[in-house]
Design a binder for these strands. Structure first.
Lengths: 139, 139
DNA sequence: CCAATACCTGCAACGGAAGTGCAATTATTG
DNA sequence: CAATAATTGCACTTCCGTTGCAGGTATTGG
């Protein structure tokens, strides 16, 4: 079942606009998490706010998820099929390259069980591995 | 071997000033990670920049370490004895309470081995468990 | 098909946090 | 005590995230 981006957005109850299609395609092309200013630099004609709100809309509709990789700047990436970001038990694992500064979703690598002391209740886990990515280490 | 704070700071090659003693004591009293504005609110007479630079100094000398708990605001906590924050292999584990918004160092809970795909080199791991802390869950 | 409505976009502006340059003050050293 | 070095405070800047409002564009119902 191949569905177009337009159909996909409509299925998520998001109105299809030129801007949204462009941003969606931009995210889909990339394998890494992007910042808002990455998007800004790519679509210089568009307003910051529009891009910001587009991402927010995508986030609300569980099309993209936010990533905090410790750089202090929020990054975003498309959710994969089966990614249940809205559910707290969904565990994220991200890799941040200290060399090229890119952040990658390692969706296939699940987070192991983490023990917390008595009295503490774990609801969610944010795990960022930092180091050198495959492209940079291969050089 | 009890050493005074003055002696401790001197051993780290940090000049002892009233400000630094106050901030050190403030950090030592607390069991949780604090933000820069926490410190600002506590020492309203002092200038923001001074507090900022004091923390930076402590950080450079490995007296405090930075914590990124996903709130977007950098927090700081005293390094414990034996905490080798400057060494990349030192693994941090922190707990962020979604209720009281406090972040706690769980220094006794080490991070388990995380597998990364071939070609990736892991240098450091940031792990934040979010949930309800012992104080909040006990109520 | 048109009007009413809802939604999207762009501009302007705000607020918080991090960071820097510089001058003045304070401490250290010889 | 003088020269030097480090610390502190003020002013200012930058960056990111966010919101209010006005104008434009798309959608819906009659």
């Amino acid at each position: 079942m191949m569905e177009t981006i337009e159909q996909f957005l409509e299925s998520k109850k998001i109105r299809v606009t030129a801007m949204r299609l462009l941003i969606y395609k931009f995210l889909a092309e990339r394998q890494v998490a992007v910042t808002l200013s990455d998007i800004e630099n790519t679509f210089e004609k568009a307003d910051r706010t529009t891009l910001y709100r587009t991402i927010k809309t995508f986030e609300d509709k569980a099309i993209v998820h936010q990533i905090d990789d410790g750089t202090g700047i929020t990054k975003y990436a498309l959710c994969e099929q089966g990614c249940n970001c809205e559910i707290e038990t969904d565990l994220h694992l991200h890799f941040h390259c200290n060399n090229c500064n890119q952040t990658i979703c390692l969706t296939e690598h699940k987070i192991p069980q983490i023990k917390v002391p008595d009295g503490f209740v774990s609801e969610n886990i944010n795990l960022v591995v930092k180091g050198i990515c495959d492209k940079c280490s291969g050089q």
